[in-house]
Design a protein around this nucleic acid. Structure first.
Length: 192
DNA sequence: GTAATGATCTCT
DNA sequence: GAGATCATTACC
């Protein structure tokens, strides 16, 4: 039973954090979400939806619980999950997953996990509450600490703490270009 | 129609 | 540190 649409109809940051530890399934492959980034609509220059509704971003403004897939650098697909109620922009970039079943290739990066799971532009707008691509509650309850950092690979709003990942998980993609400023001293994963 | 840009990855 | 490679967007 996939997660209900109401799970996604919440503020983007809330959905991003809630997605950690959830299980994404496609065909016979399944994987655990270990790293995500929140992309807000308004007030977030780094978000594709920042400049308003275009043919590409229309799904981000639509009903939650759908997939926003796009091609980056002409060769890599990135998977996002639409959050917020219909009419409000907001999505969560899936940055890394931990293979659970049916996955051979590495999946510790946005472009890598789409390749490992077989996700392409054909999944643009796919409904994640039903169909071949779905998100589920993990079979066994688990506890973990959520760490926060700035988002990776962007040039705008690169200081906002909108990247969330499972602290210490070995499948997290990499360290942020710039550590999250939090008082003084070197950055460390922050329990939340 | 044309040009710039990029939420990446791999190799050097 | 550079190159691959193309959909999308902004501007003419």
């Amino acid at each position: 039973m996939a997660l209900d649409r109401s799970f996604y109809a919440r503020p983007t940051v809330e959905v991003a954090r809630a997605l950690l530890g959830k299980v994404i399934r496609h065909a016979r492959a399944s994987a655990r979400i270990v790293e995500v980034e929140a992309y807000l609509g308004a007030n977030d220059p780094a978000a594709h939806s920042y400049r308003g509704l275009t043919p590409r971003t229309r799904v981000i403004f639509g009903p939650p619980g759908h997939a926003y897939v796009y091609l980056i650098y002409g060769m890599h697909h990135c998977l996002n999950i639409v959050a917020e109620p219909a009419g409000v922009a907001g999505c969560v970039l899936i940055r890394a997953v931990e293979p659970l079943r049916g996955i051979a290739a590495p999946s510790n990066g946005p472009g890598k996990l789409t390749r490992a799971l077989g996700i392409t532009l054909a999944h643009y707008g796919a409904d994640l509450t039903r169909g071949p691509l779905t998100v589920h509650e993990p079979s066994a309850a688990e506890t973990f600490a959520i760490a926060v950092s700035p988002r990776i690979g962007i040039t705008q709003a690169s200081d906002l703490p909108l990247r969330f990942f499972i602290a210490g998980n070995p499948f997290v993609s990499r360290s942020p270009a710039r550590p999250l400023a939090q008082g003084k001293g070197p950055w460390k994963p922050e329990d939340v």
